[in-house]
């Protein structure tokens, strides 16, 4: 297979684009896809102060590198979840990446916040992934607001977004369908949230990270075994293999023709968030999810 731009041997085959690129042309392709996402969805500009959530995996590190190369004003935030045998590796990758590429890094330690994930996992009789996700969203948002960032960027890619959409559709979850997208605007108590990699697949971010010399962490989280998203991703991989381009058309079709209807319906039916009396975080309940977790953990803020 030859690269269509420079006619040298291709390194990355992309059936959904009916092409295969050499290393240099693939990086150009990747960069253009990110730029297109930012422009088409008006995600942010050079004036914005962007906080990037850095897990240490290929997606978040690729995002940080690419936004840095495109000249955006960025810094990274890593959350050390205190998971034995996993968190120390992830943190090490993030710290090395930020040192090697000159990215400003902040680290939040969940041990110090009184919410180490293994302890949360023991205390609650339910899958820890949703609690962990809730804790991460809360602290990323809080850190951004407290430190003057007006945009929070995450490395969610097309596979993440397509799997999430598939899951929301399977349940016809109007609230989640109405608020899913790569461009969630700032609201009272919430910083603007963006996903600039939404046009790029996991396969593409893995290839980019390799070619950009990013030493990312690829050890899976020990709690993620059997997660339904992993199964949905496998299903969608099969579909993409048989019908290249299905994932992006499924997701972009939703953004362009489906999302608004769900957002309108949710606006009519959903409750309006108010500040949590415990911490001020927006919530539709009596107290927010994090204050509830703290209550159960017996470690009030």
């Amino acid at each position: 297979m030859k690269c269509p731009r420079c006619k040298t041997t291709a390194a990355v085959a992309l059936p959904s684009h009916n092409a295969g690129f050499c290393p240099e042309c693939f990086k150009v392709f990747f960069s253009r896809q990110v730029a297109k996402a930012i422009k088409e969805r008006q995600l942010f500009s050079k004036e914005d102060k962007i906080l990037i959530a850095l897990s240490g995996g290929k997606d978040s590190l690729a995002l940080a590198r690419e936004l840095q190369l495109q000249g955006y004003n960025t810094a990274g935030l890593h959350m050390d979840l205190a998971i034995p045998g996993s968190s120390d590796k992830a943190r090490d990758h993030v710290e090395r990446f930020c040192r090697d590429f000159g990215v400003d890094l902040h680290v939040l330690e969940m041990e110090k916040e009184g919410l180490p994930i293994p302890v949360v996992e023991k205390k609650f009789n339910r899958p820890v992934c949703s609690l962990c996700g809730r804790i991460k969203r809360y602290y990323f948002n809080k850190f951004a607001l407290d430190h003057g960032f007006n945009v929070l960027a995450t490395g969610h890619n097309l596979d993440d977004e397509a799997a999430r959409l598939f899951s929301n559709v399977m349940r016809w979850d109007v609230s989640h369908l109405g608020s899913q997208g790569p461009d969630l605007p700032a609201e009272q108590g919430f910083v603007r949230k963006v996903k600039p990699l939404y046009r790029l697949s996991e396969f593409e971010t893995a290839n980019y990270s390799f070619l950009a010399g990013i030493d990312y962490c690829y050890s899976p989280c020990p709690y993620s075994k059997g997660a339904s998203f992993t199964y949905y991703k496998t299903l969608l991989d099969e579909l993409e293999y048989e019908q290249p381009g299905r994932k992006i058309s499924f997701y972009e079709g939703f953004l362009n023709r489906g999302r608004q209807a769900f957002a309108r319906q949710d606006e009519q039916q959903g409750g309006k968030p108010r500040p949590c009396p415990g911490c001020g975080y927006p919530t539709t309940g009596e107290i927010c999810g994090i204050c509830r977790i703290r209550e159960i953990m017996g470690s009030k803020e």
Binding site: A11, A13, A206, D237
Partner: peptide
């Protein structure tokens, strides 16, 4: 599937063909 893994030989990425 080809979109589920990257294949590396001597530091070089390989396409399925």
């Amino acid at each position: 599937r080809p979109n589920q893994a990257v294949v590396i030989r001597n530091g070089e990425l390989l396409t399925p063909d």
